[in-house]
Computed example of a mutant assay.
Amino acid sequence: MESITKNRQSLDTLRAMVARAYGDDHVPSRTGRWVHELRHGWFNVAYRIRLRDGRHVVLKIAPARDVDVMTYERGAMATELAAIELIRARTTVPVPDVDFVDASGELGGAGWFFMPYVDAENYGVIRSALSACEQDRLDGALGRATRELNTITGEAFGPLAGPGVAGWRACFLSMVEAVLADGSRRGVDLDYARLRALFAAHADCLDEVTEPRFVEWDLWDSNVLTRDGEIVCIIDHERAFWGDPLIEAGFVATRLPSFGNPAAFLRGYGKPALTPGEHDRRRLYNLHLTLVMLIETAYRGVTGPRHLSWVRARLAEALALF
């Protein structure tokens, strides 16, 4: 996907990054096709690179430091690296290894890191070609993986690196306010006063959440790599935080059917039904999510009317739940 946040680099800079990470002996020759951009993401740029010894690795580069991003996206690469470390240390959910990290910005004007290439298929890409049974199996596995991620507990609600707050209500409402402020700053056409009042009027249900849990939040099928009908890797962890597990992507469709059928995910997660309070929280989370989806288009440089129309329709559905 195209986005102005993608910090693409010249072949010479990519070769310099390889040299810094793996040594001069592994730098690809100047001839032949040794680099391929992986285009499914919408924030960072990622390249698949063949090293001189034949190994394939992935290079992920953060947006340039002078590119304006949404408030919650600041420091996203550091969040991803912290999330990978947490997941690897405290769960069995498969995540990428990290070969090398450079946060200096000396090359490419931003942070970047290398990881081994995982030879697998992207579930979001191949989903429509799978049978209903195969989709059901993978959705159930995604539910189980999400549940295991949510077993990781934290000390406070908020960013993985802190600072956090003691209550989920204060944390979530601050997340909402940051998104609305991002939209206002870019002139996104919304009734901001009405939205703020709506969140405030329905915030009591947030007090049911008392324990900070690791939340991946962006765990859609497009961030799942599969092989032979099994999940072999979860990727793109830059949106993780300490929060309420019910805010996870797999629960979106419980109140917004346009996002698919959540039955297999819920079965895998071990949560066949939501309580009334959870339904109320999910309404708030869906409204927050669809606002993010709309406002981020201004930060990605998306102008296509088809996508904007689709996002506006999802926001209208989320508002209709109230």
Rank of each mutant, 00 (worst) to 15 (best):
K6Q: 01
N7P: 00
Q9V: 03
L11C: 09
R15C: 07
R15E: 06
A19E: 15
P28Y: 09
T31Y: 15
V35Q: 10
H40G: 15
V45M: 06
I49F: 07
R50I: 12
R50Q: 10
G54E: 06
G54K: 05
L59E: 00
K60L: 02
R65H: 08
R65P: 11
D68A: 15
V69K: 09
T71Y: 13
T71P: 13
M77L: 14
T79K: 08
E80C: 07
I87C: 02
T92R: 11
P94N: 01
D99Q: 03
D102R: 03
A103R: 14
A103C: 15
S104G: 08
L107H: 02
G109Y: 09
F113M: 07
M115D: 12
Y117V: 08
Y117T: 02
Y117G: 05
V118R: 11
V118H: 12
V118M: 01
D119K: 03
E121F: 07
V125W: 10
R127G: 04
S128E: 09
S128H: 12
S131T: 01
R137C: 12
L138H: 01
A141T: 08
L142H: 07
T153K: 13
G154Y: 06
G154D: 07
E155R: 13
A161V: 14
A161I: 14
W168R: 03
C171N: 09
L173T: 02
L173Q: 00
E177P: 01
E177H: 06
A178Y: 11
A181V: 10
D182R: 08
G183A: 04
V188M: 09
L190F: 00
D191W: 08
D191E: 08
Y192V: 02
L195T: 03
L195P: 10
A197I: 11
H202W: 10
A203D: 04
D204L: 07
E208C: 11
P212F: 01
P212W: 03
F214S: 04
W220R: 14
N223I: 00
V224L: 04
H237M: 06
E238D: 04
F241Y: 06
I247A: 13
E248N: 05
V252K: 15
A253D: 07
R255M: 13
N261I: 13
P262T: 07
A264H: 01
L274A: 03
P276Q: 02
P276G: 00
G277V: 04
R282C: 13
R282K: 13
N286M: 02
N286H: 05
L294A: 05
I295Y: 04
V302E: 14
P305T: 12
W310D: 15
V311C: 14
R312G: 13
E317A: 06
E317H: 01
A318I: 07
L319A: 03
L321P: 03
